[in-house]
Nucleic acid binder design. Structure first.
Lengths: 156, 156
DNA sequence: CTATTATAGACAACTTGATTGTCGTTTGCG
DNA sequence: CGCAAACGACAATCAAGTTGTCTATAATAG
């Protein structure tokens, strides 16, 4: 097998895509249409305390403008609430709405189901050693998900 | 650990990114600037017999227009040669040039090195069982790499 | 206390990679 | 022969980013 290195990369990508595709499809079929990973991640960051567009941008390593666009979508769908901060008139305070949390929970449940089906496919011990191995390889460097078409793009 | 499913997805993505980032950086430092995964994959497909834009598009599951654009870049850099097919005046026959093969070889070598460094990090047996597990999970469904910012995008 | 500097968010223009739609040309088949 | 199908080109559009500029507000230095 001559290009096992490249193949490994493809496998990693493939496994990721399989998970994400299925979760997105699952959310879709539950009525949460058009929820993409980025939205999930953004909501998660907001729930975790990124309460302004600029802050969200920083956390996700994206320009505040890009963050603002994502927020606009989330607000439009009722997943996030944006209201002027009484303490600082420049800010618009962000909050995940109950509906937003619902989506997040649904997403997590789907991910969890998927993980369980992986366990059935390859065995629990196999899966957990896979996770451990990946964790070692990835280290604790934050994973950037954004960047338009980053698969095809220059990496800063 | 409540969201281990989602976390697994992130780990997979992270590992993929780590590999790709390093390979792209490596190619860059060897003078092959701005070679992105997509280019590698396209060249590979061309070398494997996708000898026209339309055909390349089909193989990579991308519109022929998108394929044509990628080809234009590859031609411009001298990685791929495009000449009218004597047998069919509609076609432009594609060929990977020696320089193109050079890049591909360099990329593979980098991937291989990376894989070896993974072996050192987590052990050879651990890595090969990781690969086996991933192979089971991914199955033989072709992995689409394209789609602009697909992480954030609607999945057909 | 005021003047400067920094931060938040809005708006606009541009970039990249892909898509769809249309078109002229060439081929191949009934 | 004639017409449908396939190839590649061109153009318009989309999606998700980016940078750059602007106004309003806050914080800080003198």
């Amino acid at each position: 097998m001559s290009r096992s290195g490249a193949e490994l990369a493809l496998l990693l990508l493939g496994a990721y895509r399989r998970m994400v595709d299925e979760v997105v499809a699952g959310l879709e079929s539950q009525g949460y249409s058009d929820v993409r990973p980025v939205h999930e991640f953004a909501m998660r960051a907001i729930a975790a305390g990124a309460d302004s567009a600029s802050e969200l941008g920083r956390r996700v390593s994206v320009s505040k403008q890009a963050a603002a666009k994502t927020i606009a979508i989330l607000v439009e769908r009722g997943y996030v609430d944006r209201e002027t901060d009484p303490a600082d008139a420049r800010r618009k305070r962000l909050d995940v709405t109950p509906l937003g949390f619902e989506v997040m929970r649904a997403g997590e449940a789907l991910f969890e189901e998927l993980r369980e089906s992986f366990e059935r496919e390859i065995g629990a011990s196999e899966l957990s050693s896979l996770e451990a191995a990946l964790k070692t390889l990835v280290g604790n460097s934050a994973v950037r998900i954004e960047a338009p078409g980053w698969v095809a793009q220059e990496l800063d």
